[in-house]
Amino acid sequence: MNWLTDFIRPRIRSLVPQKEVPDNLWTKCPSCEGMLFHRDLDEALNVCYHCGHHMRITVKKRLGMLFDNGTYETLELPKVPFDPLKFKDRKKYADRLRDAQAKTNLKEAITLAKGTICGQKTVIAAFNFSFMGGSMGAGVGEAIVRAAEEAVASGSALVVIPSSGGARMQEGMLSLVQMPRSIIAVEMVKEARLPYIVLLTDPTTGGVSASFAMVGDIHLAEPGAMIGFAGRRVIEETVREVLPENFQTAEYLLEHGIVDQVVPRAELPETIGRILGLLMDKSACCSDTGKTKKTRKTGTAQA
């Protein structure tokens, strides 16, 4: 925030041998390399308080900050075939899957939850990037269908928050057909005239970006998030030109008309809540009825 934290503190830190600092107390911002104290970083919702860089955030924290008072109910994930192709590369997919489950303590790369945002009933399907890169196979696709069914059954809005490298290739064609399957899910929500909001977070690429993520009523994106179809390296190899620095960032997509708004993380609950209110609550009310902000708490600080 000032020259002391910006400049002097990192400088001093660089003089002190690393081992004296327990590694979980401080995080280095990957963008400005400023040092971030874990409690402050947590308070700032994993956004660098030196430069505003948005780091990834756990799903638990994400749900806690979005839902009113940080309270929500998680939905059980639907059962799907485990390793349908018996896929094996250098390692068995079954093992990779079990490892990911053990590492993250999650069943799949997606979490479903329901609650309210600024008083509006909402179902959220949020991707866990740490689970096999948030890749979409049958488990994730089926979960999106489940989320849509729940939204329709309970008259809730659907908010999907992708953070994914794309399709899970270890499930072969079964992962590719999740593109139409997830769009069918969105169709159900749209037919019920319920809002479908996509919150694009870092990264949203490949088969995930080319399906449910691009058919939202509203597309919001977090600052700096990487969003695109093909990977930057593939494009550079194909077209043999140097791409702009901010190519495929949320801001670049905003300029090119693909997202509605780029919204800093801290403003998301209020923005999503306001949009949901505008789309779902037809009764006349003025914006400062206090229905929103003040009743909110920034979730639980776990995980």
Binding site: M179, P180, I183, I184, V186, E187, S209, A210, S211, F212, A213, M214, V215, I227, G228, F229, A230, G231, V234, I235, T238, V239, E241, L243, F247, Q248, H256, G257, I258
Partner: peptide
Amino acid sequence: PGRGAEERGQSEAIAKSIESCL
């Protein structure tokens, strides 16, 4: 996979094409 294709919304075009089929 090209620069222009990305700028003009390759992902969106594919997603909407699937939607049109449905």
